[in-house]
């Protein structure tokens, strides 16, 4: 029997734990590996992701930036929560797209929302400028790097999309649990880095060129590319869902779409032995 628990996924289950084979709630004392030892050394910070979100995609276009993520929060191989929003707006001109551990994401939301409330209050009373996307990204980077340095990582990969009011240009950047940071006109986390990033780069460079000096994609073109990518991810990423949202960040502010689905085609499956109806 194969273990379904995220901590031991894919490993054979110990013979003496035949009950609760599909642990559908986290068990703190779940056995790791097959050892009878309960010794794990001193209690550490080190965690592992339990309820996780998969790829997030980001793409700069003419007049703004788009971020896409599906609505699934998986528990190992179980599609546990199917109506989770992984796009989170921060203030007027910034939005996070979050992959990885969803409880760390919720903690992050709480912390950042609290900070933004303070900032908003300050911005009312004097000429205190509101936090720019770059400010928020810097803060996130420092937070993630500090936590990894304490060996207690925030188990996420985050895309920060935004509109810089001063420079009048879009902002798109990445930060992850190691504190690794980078920016690029197209970004993707996790499986998306393998499956979607090549498609995003191809579409971006087809118009803007390799130096990015040409015209950018229009809003409609960008949305089409992202929808194609989300479809490809749904076809091939087993931890994805055909229900996703696209956020658009422009000088006008943040707009998060309603959940939508890509049109998928499964006719080919009928002809596959072991997939469609058996004819012999």
């Amino acid at each position: 029997m194969m273990s379904q628990h995220p901590a031991t996924w894919g490993q054979p289950t110990p013979a003496n734990s035949s009950f609760n084979q599909f642990n559908t709630f986290p068990l703190p004392q779940t056995q790791r590996g097959q050892s009878s030892h309960a010794h794990h050394g001193p209690v550490g910070h080190t965690q592992q992701p339990l309820v996780t979100g998969t790829s997030v995609l980001g793409l700069k276009y003419d007049g703004g930036v788009m971020i896409a993520a599906d609505n699934l929060a998986s528990y190992g191989s179980l599609a546990r929560f199917r109506d989770i929003q992984r796009l989170h707006p921060l203030g007027q001109h910034t939005l996070l797209g979050v992959a990885g551990d969803m409880s760390d994401f919720q903690w992050l939301k709480k912390e950042l929302d609290a900070l933004l409330r303070e900032e908003d209050a300050l911005a009312l009373t004097d000429s205190h400028p509101s936090l720019s996307p770059k400010n928020i990204y810097e803060l996130l980077s420092n937070l993630f790097y500090a936590r990894r340095s304490k060996m207690n990582p925030v188990w996420n990969a985050v895309l920060v999309g935004g509109w810089d009011k001063v420079k009048k240009e879009s902002f798109l950047a990445y930060v992850d649990l190691l504190g690794t940071t980078y920016t690029a006109p197209t970004l993707a986390t996790g499986f998306g880095a393998h499956l979607a990033q090549p498609l995003l780069r191809e579409a971006y460079e087809a118009k803007a060129g390799i130096d990015g000096n040409g015209p950018l994609l229009t809003k409609e073109e960008a949305e089409k590319v992202l929808e194609d990518c989300m479809k490809v991810l749904f076809y091939r990423d087993a931890r994805s869902l055909n229900k996703y949202q696209i956020a658009t960040i422009t000088s006008e502010g943040v707009d998060i779409s309603d959940s939508k689905s890509a049109d998928t085609y499964w006719k080919f499956a009928e002809g596959l032995r072991g997939y469609g109806a058996q004819t012999q």
Binding site: R32, S35, T46, M151, P153, L178
Partner: peptide, 18 residues
Amino acid sequence: QEPTAAPIEHRFNPYSDN
């Protein structure tokens, strides 16, 4: 004679090579 092998630890690796 008891199995002495420690459980397979998925210890967090704080480094990467870029």
